[in-house]
């Protein structure tokens, strides 16, 4: 049981990075980026490529992040320059990445046991905790900068961003690149953690990310102390612990994808009903403008 908890926390921390990536697109920019399921294995395959070429594991992991940002660049250019709907743009990137991933190493499954990993250097849990906290702090600081605030405002009200003399498209590109970089990094870490890379490892990860964010939003709903990134991290860990318990109770690991979908459905349904009730009460008082386009409602 104890090792189950530790494993869940370790995996939760890896997915926390994914969740923070998804947070930037889905929640802050208000763009549903579906390329995630291609970007996650993309990061893993990039890592496998470099490590098998003899590159140092730390650098290989870093390169997964850097090259991963290109997936975000592709999606954003598809919808900004070619005016393809963001949803479709993400799907097109994901589909393209499927072929790209298979090309990178010419194989769909690569064992990594013979190679070094960043986990050889420092205990897994410690390393992951440091990494996740560092990313959280960097993101939190970034969202306090002028550029960071414009990114938030882009998701909120593009008209305002333009009226400030800034290009909202630029901030969408920055956000999508950052998001996809983090997701690829998460994939590279997962590859090292499980000891192999597989083409199917991205299946369902978008739902895991969304589930993490939604669970995170539900903890101490009204507390303003808990920031978005902290919520995503806690959400990912809780999600993995729920999954660990489910397996312990006898569910097959393959059942977990359905479990995560059910978690998302339940939480969104709960939030929607709660928010609609709230809005209808407030609307009686004054003309409150309620944006109903969010994939995940901002719950504060």
């Amino acid at each position: 049981m104890n090792s189950l908890i530790i494993t869940s926390i370790e995996q939760g921390l890896i997915f926390a990075i994914l969740a923070m990536g998804i947070l930037i697109t889905n929640k802050i920019l208000n763009i549903a980026d579906l390329s995630v399921e291609g970007t996650f294995p993309f990061g893993a395959f990039i890592f496998a490529k470099f490590i098998s070429m003899g590159v140092d594991p730390v650098l290989s992991t870093l390169l997964a992040f850097v090259i991963g940002t290109l997936a975000g660049l592709m999606t954003s250019l598809l919808f900004i320059k070619l005016k393809i709907k963001p949803l479709l743009a993400g799907i097109l990137t994901m589909t393209t990445l499927y072929s790209v991933n298979l090309r990178i190493n010419g194989k769909s499954n690569i064992p990594l046991f013979n190679f070094d990993s960043i986990f050889d250097l420092v205990p897994i849990l410690l390393l992951l905790a440091i990494l996740v906290i560092a990313i959280k702090i960097i993101l939190d600081e970034f969202f306090k900068t002028e550029v960071g605030y414009l990114l938030i405002a882009t998701g909120d009200n593009e008209t305002l961003v333009k009226s400030l003399g800034a290009s909202s498209n630029k901030y969408k590109i920055i956000g999508l690149m950052l998001s996809n970089g983090l997701i690829a990094l998460s994939g590279a870490l997962m590859a090292q953690y499980q000891g192999f890379v597989d083409i199917t490892m991205g299946t369902g990860v978008i739902v895991i990310g969304l589930a993490s964010i939604i669970i995170g939003d539900t903890i101490k709903k009204n507390s303003t102390k808990l920031g978005n990134t902290t919520r995503a991290i806690i959400g990912a860990i809780i999600y993995k612990i729920i999954g660990g318990i489910a397996i312990d109770l006898g569910l097959a690991p393959s059942d977990l994808k359905a479990v995560s979908a059910i978690i998302v459905i339940l939480f969104i349904a709960y939030n929607n009903v709660a928010i609609d009730l709230f809005a209808s009460i407030k609307n009686k008082g004054e003309g409150v403008y309620v944006k109903n386009t969010r994939l995940i409602k901002k719950v504060q």
Partner: peptide, 11 residues
Amino acid sequence: KKGDRFSLKRL
């Protein structure tokens, strides 16, 4: 900051 350059300084 309207019309200015937006940077990585704190807003």
